[in-house]
Nucleic acid binder design. Structure first.
Lengths: 182, 182
DNA sequence: ACCTGAACACCGTTCAAGT
DNA sequence: ACCTGAACACCGTTCAAGT
């Protein structure tokens, strides 16, 4: 039997976290699925909170930059970039948006997740506001619309977690048009 | 010592549910705070799931109609009604919007909460779509905008739970204007 | 460096017994 | 009709001991 690393625990925990929330991350079942005793967990982590902390840390890494880079590469025109952003966010796979929702629920309970989530939100908001400005919306209004758009996305994620259908192409087109209205 | 009714348990559970989510609703601490043994809980409810079921049932009663009535009474002009709706939803007290978020997280885990939340969402969406139609937006577009608005509200609630500032008057005004754009 | 096994605390659930 | 107290299972956490 190969020995486990902290990363093995984080990967297993992240899977459960994304599917069923922070609460479904339990040491004993995790240990069983990894084929070790639950006691061995405490060699890798101080406690359950430390494991959850590592899970959200890993999310911050990949959650912020990937999409931004993708959007920049996809188009030059700001209106097209906004559409590319829609495709990458509203069109994200279920596993990703479940994770987004799980972090936010957890952020309401846990100070570390809270600080980290706010940082992620701030970066994304700045990016979207910049994009709207580039499309000709005045700065103050661009900030407001960025915040509205971000709320819409987060709300869509949460509602999908209990079975709402994705926003269809028509709704996204309406949103695109409204956000760029002068 | 006065004996307890099922409603006493529901009230105590609803308070914890709204503040810290379904997960914070634990029988033993609840029993302690009510001054009885945890065993007595099982005279009133089949199990923990039944208690949570009763908590969300109570929410459905008051969560759907109160606001709709209030909005209808507040104004006659559809645009003014939309604004009255904003005040009653984006301006809701923290306890209410925490509860809204908690139900939705719970709905992703629990079939009963899921069915019930979808029913509540459907009723509210129909009301908002009707309101936008009355304001002159064509039916199909009114539906799309209602869904977008509802996403925005739910997203705002979730983000507030981890400390985001409320949308300010300026943002709400922008949203109001965009939703009524022809 | 990584793991086991036993121990203890906390909480969900059951149930026989109490008033 | 409503509650207690003891019992058991499950899981978080600790720790001495193993390799």
């Amino acid at each position: 039997m190969a020995k486990l690393s902290a990363d093995d625990w984080i990967a297993a925990a992240a899977a459960r976290f994304g599917e069923h929330g922070a609460d479904a991350v339990r040491i004993e079942p995790l240990a069983k699925s990894l084929g070790v005793s639950k006691g061995s967990f405490y060699w890798h982590f101080k406690d359950r909170a430390a494991l959850l902390g590592a899970v959200v840390d890993a999310w911050e890494q990949r959650g912020t930059l990937e999409i931004i880079e993708g959007v920049r590469a996809a188009a030059d025109d700001p209106a097209d970039q906004l559409w590319a952003l829609f495709e990458r966010t509203f069109g994200t796979p279920t596993s990703v948006d479940m994770f987004e929702t799980a972090v936010r629920s957890w952020a309401s309970q846990d100070p570390h997740a809270r600080k980290l989530t706010k940082r992620v939100d701030r970066k994304r908001l700045a990016f979207v506001a910049g994009l709207l400005q580039a499309a000709g919306i005045p700065k103050a209004e661009a900030k407001r619309r960025a915040e509205l758009l971000y709320c819409t996305l987060i709300g869509e994620f949460l509602q999908r977690s209990y079975g709402k259908q994705r926003l269809d192409r028509g709704s996204l087109r309406s949103l695109h048009r409204l956000l760029l209205t002068m």
